[in-house]
Structure formats: structure tokens, C-alpha cells
Nucleic acid binder design. Sequence first.
DNA 1: CTCCGATCCTGATGGC
DNA 2: TGCCATCAGGATCGGA
Length: 277
Amino acid sequence: MPELPEVETIVRQLRNYAIGRRIDKAELLRESMLKRSTLPFDDFFRNCSFAKIDRRGKYIIFSLDNGSRLLAHLGMTGKFVVSENENTADKHLCSRYIFDDGGCLDHIDIRRFGRLETYRENESIPVLERLGIEPLSDDFDASSLKAVISTRNGKTVRTRAIHTLLMDQRLIAGVGNIYASEALFRAGIRPVRKASRVKKKELPLLAESLKKVMEESLEEGGTTVSDYRRVDDKPGNFKEFLRVYGRAGEPCRKCGTEIKRIRLNGRSAFFCPECQR
DNA sequence: CTCCGATCCTGATGGC
DNA sequence: TGCCATCAGGATCGGA
């Protein structure tokens, strides 16, 4: 499942591969993936090329040279893969962008939990406006984490589990199951602990942990658990560095205690009962 | 505010 | 060998 480091890896590769190449044809093979209907899909890409590719949270924003934008979310199993020609098509091909030099960019999503949206120049993108702070930005530190964690309006106490809160895209953008679990392990905090019970003294380490684990993963091209692939169709290498995620029943790398898996609001969380309190 | 369940979807897995 | 049922889960939405 692509989270921030995976999406950032994809975006960086996409910039190298797709920017400036003229799009001959765009095809939408899974029509239900396009959530906002405007023009026919191929008309949207007529006579243009990708000018800019950006990431916000887990979203990819493709800006065309005519000012229009394509918004993509990869859901659980989505990927963008480059290929030399258009002769072969994956069974789960959702959309495809064929360049005038014969190469093409394939958008594949087995479970189709992802989505595409198209926007004209100057149109606002509502889903992006609802996103919280970028954890890899300079703005993200102990004090901004405190602002997110403790209260929203100065009165309400946050009773949700810290793990649940870290994954709330309205608060922090781009954190999913893997990095929430990994950051909490590094910070020595149990995923079930109520956000309001995270002490002020723990905040610098938690903020730093989240930042570091995502930066380290980015260095390795992200984490491949099952479906995630980079644009060159290679897996990310960070899985072997994970300390708790997906390691239920295995010994903690720090103390040897068995790693536990629990369910929190329908999501899996992994932790070491000894190292995290 | 917070949680819960349903929705979208396919592949892997386990039982019989 | 094969046919169900179950499960996983990112985001959204309606309801409690």
C-alpha cells in the first residue's frame, strides 16, 4: 500500500520519465476509476504533455502544459509503470498514456481502490484542501505535532488512539499503517494509547521518529509488502528494515519479546509490548 | 468528536 | 481438484 515514501518515490521517477513527453493518446479502461466526470478522458489529454508532477499526502498531481491537472490516488494496489511499447496490456490496466515516441505509462490497480480526478486550470481540488500537515516539511516538528494531537479548538480533548490519529489524513498527510506503527515503535509509545496521554516530553521523539522512518524508507525506494512497485516495476527495499509492521509473532529486534498485532478501528497495528508503553 | 458499519474490489488462504 | 466463505484495507459517508 503506497504511503508517503512510496508515493514520493513514484513521483520522483515519474518526473524523470514523463515530463515533457507529448501524449499521443490517453485511454481510460476502468471508467469507474474516474470520480469526477468532465470531458471524455482522451479529450482531456488532447495535444498536451505532462509539465509538472507533484505529491500531496498520498495523492499525485499531474499538471499538463495547458494548465489542467490529473489527480491520482493509488489506494491499496495501484501503480504507475513505464513500458517501451503498447503491445502488452496488464489485466488490471486502468488508464494508459501513450507518448508520441512509442513509449507509454500504464496505470494498473488490481483492487481498484484508487481514484482519478480531472481538474481544469484554476479549479480548486477539494480533497487536497482537507489534508493536514506534510510530515517531511520543515513545518512539522514537536510543536506542530502537539497542535495536531492535543486539541483542535482549545477545548476538546483527543480521546482517540494515537495510532488512529497519526493516520488521519486531515491532521497529518501521507501516514498509513506501516509508518504509524514504525514511528510509534521508535518513540516507545503503544498504538492504543490515547492521544491526550502522549506526554509533552515524548513529542520531539515521536515527530522525529515519523520523519526519520519516512526519510529512511524513501532512501530505499519505499516498502514493498505485496503490491507496491516503483515506476520501473521494481519493489522498494525498506521491508527488511521494518521493526514491527508485519512482524506479529516474531521477536522484537531490540528486546526479543514477541511482536503483537491488534486491530484499531478496523486497521492493524503492530507493537512490542516491552518496548512500547 | 468519535466510532461503527457499509461501500468499492480482487487475490490469497483455509475448510470441506 | 474445486468451490465457497473469509479477510485485508484507504478513503468516504451516513448514522448512532
